[in-house]
Design a protein around this nucleic acid. Structure first.
Lengths: 204, 204
DNA sequence: TGTACATCAGTGAACGCGCGTTCACTGATGTAC
DNA sequence: TGTACATCAGTGAACGCGCGTTCACTGATGTAC
């Protein structure tokens, strides 16, 4: 009965093809990036013909959307289980956020539309998932900030973590020996502000 | 003699094809994104055969690199001429940075590798340009911060502006009536820090 | 001032590729009786 | 318990497309004498 496990010899019906396709797609995503996502290559990796995928997805865009959905769901779990998030501290969640992106760079890029901008912008599922994530962030901030500052603060935090995550996975700078330490140091500034800063904006 | 201007009737030699190709490529970039960059389409827009481009570029990757080079050069000018940057204030430069990305979203994405990750990561010109930009940022900070804090502060600022720029050009949130005001408000937090923040990191 | 010629910057045709998707099909499964 | 049959989940072949790039070529340009 373990024949279904490892050395399963090409049964006609796969049994869990939808899942298998998504997993293969995800591996492809991490190996070659969102731009390289393709139905034929995904099917090839699963050992199935390309048209078989159409019994489970309406097309390539649909696969991309499903991957992004999984990504957002995982990210949410990741953030909610970040240590001491419950105490109202932000750094642990920020560190977890960046860690997720570093662990799943291809997926993270896909989640933000790379390669599928057209498909995503017109898809309500994606829009919903992103705004859900954003609401979680705002809720976290609501414990610590007056209502009228929450929107700006949330955008500030999201920008910082999103930017840091992307710069890291793009390899845009030398992360030093311990990337996590660097992330923590940068996030610490989000509480302290830049020292001796004196920016003013012109009135008018 | 003005025949060379507008209604120029298909001369065999173009005269300034390299430039024309880059400009057409840039328009394409903004219309359809880095993923849609293609030699055939670029040549088509200029009204020239595709192989003609090979007299000026070694291939598609080379065009992308040239575009990114122009982008970084323009961004640098944009930042250096930001109002009151000379006074050591950071907000104007930050606002200019985000404005550049908003004005050239396709180009900005390309500059950070979208669609040409492979080509860019192995290209020294790009690497050099990015680290040049980063040095400019650090120099700006050196007027206001002790040396040992500059690296972290620079990464903090770059992450914040990069993230904010991308979230804006991706249309990830409602920018409200005046996007510039929102950007200014977010950047202001980079000096103040998040109010009532008390994050600590565990020792060990 | 005129002409031969090297060089430069275009051309159209073609190659080979891999893609997403559709089609008519067939093998496997499970349910009704 | 056995059998007919609907349904589901695969298959291989094919379509049409657009791409990057190469090739042999030709028209235009400019320089040497």
């Amino acid at each position: 009965m373990t024949t279904t496990e490892a050395g399963a010899p090409a049964r006609y019906h796969h049994g869990d093809l939808r899942n298998a396709l998504l997993e293969a797609a995800r591996a492809l995503l991490e190996e070659r990036g969102p731009t390289a996502l393709g139905i034929r290559e995904i099917a090839r990796r699963v050992g199935v013909s390309a048209p078989a995928a159409y019994h489970h997805f309406s097309g390539l865009d649909d696969i991309a959307v499903a991957l992004a959905e999984r990504g957002f769901a995982e990210l949410a779990v990741h953030l909610q289980t970040a240590p001491s998030n419950a105490k109202g501290q932000l750094a642990p969640a920020g560190i977890a956020y960046v860690a997720f992106a570093r662990d799943n760079p291809g997926l993270y890029r896909l989640m933000f539309g790379e390669g599928f901008r057209g498909a995503f912008s017109s898809d309500d599922r994606i829009r919903r998932l992103r705004s859900d994530a954003y609401e979680v962030l705002k809720t976290g901030l609501s414990r610590r900030l007056p209502a009228e500052e929450i929107d700006t603060a949330a955008l500030f935090l999201w920008s910082l973590t999103h930017g840091l995550a992307l710069l890291m996975i793009d390899g845009q700078f030398d992360p030093g020996a311990d990337p996590d330490t660097l992330v923590a140091a940068v996030l610490r500034l989000s509480g302290k502000g830049l020292p001796t800063s004196t920016e003013r904006t012109d009135p008018g």
